[in-house]
Amino acid sequence: MAFSKPKCADFVALRDAVLLSGIVGVTDEWECSGEDFDTQARQAFANAQRVVKEAGRNWGDVAFVRAFLADISHYKDYSALFDEIFPSDPPARTTVQAGLVGPFLVELEITVTNG
């Protein structure tokens, strides 16, 4: 199912940080990347990495990740993926359960500093 991209910036650059929000697991055509949590979460992080690069920042400068999970039972899987994506010097993080727009199972907010 294709969705229209929300009317918002991919990122907002402040003097000392870049803010990303509403990062979900969609393809370049804004179609949901899959029905399972792992596929969506991996695609959401891939999308976030692309936006961080477009903002002229480095993935290693991610300072904070807030994850919204549609079902908190995915917390263990999310934590394992987070550890895989940030194998050393991980950023601060918060993970909460939230009612997300279907069919999305995960949504990310990310803060990136100047390094």
Rank of each mutant, 00 (worst) to 15 (best):
M1H: 03
M1E: 02
A2Y: 00
F3L: 12
F3S: 09
S4G: 10
D10Y: 04
F11V: 04
V12I: 14
A13F: 03
L14V: 11
L14R: 08
D16R: 12
D16F: 05
V18T: 12
L20G: 05
S21Y: 02
S21N: 01
G22R: 02
G22W: 04
I23P: 00
I23K: 01
V26E: 00
V26S: 02
T27D: 08
T27R: 05
D28F: 08
E29I: 02
E29V: 10
W30V: 09
E31R: 14
G34Q: 12
E35P: 11
D36I: 09
F37K: 11
D38W: 01
T39N: 09
T39F: 06
Q40G: 01
A41L: 11
A41S: 09
Q43M: 09
A44H: 00
V51A: 04
V51K: 07
V52A: 08
E54N: 12
G56L: 10
G56N: 10
G56Y: 08
R57C: 15
N58D: 15
W59D: 14
G60S: 15
D61C: 12
D61K: 10
V62Q: 08
F64R: 04
A67P: 01
A67C: 06
A70L: 04
D71V: 04
D71I: 01
Y75R: 14
Y75T: 01
Y75S: 09
Y78T: 05
Y78F: 15
F82K: 11
D83K: 15
F86N: 13
P87H: 02
P87R: 05
D89I: 05
P91D: 00
A92G: 14
R93W: 01
T95R: 09
V96A: 08
A98P: 00
G99P: 09
L100W: 07
L100D: 03
L100F: 08
V101D: 05
V101H: 07
G102T: 11
P103R: 15
V106F: 12
T111Q: 01
V112G: 06
V112C: 09
T113W: 04
N114L: 10
N114E: 14
N114G: 15
N114Q: 12
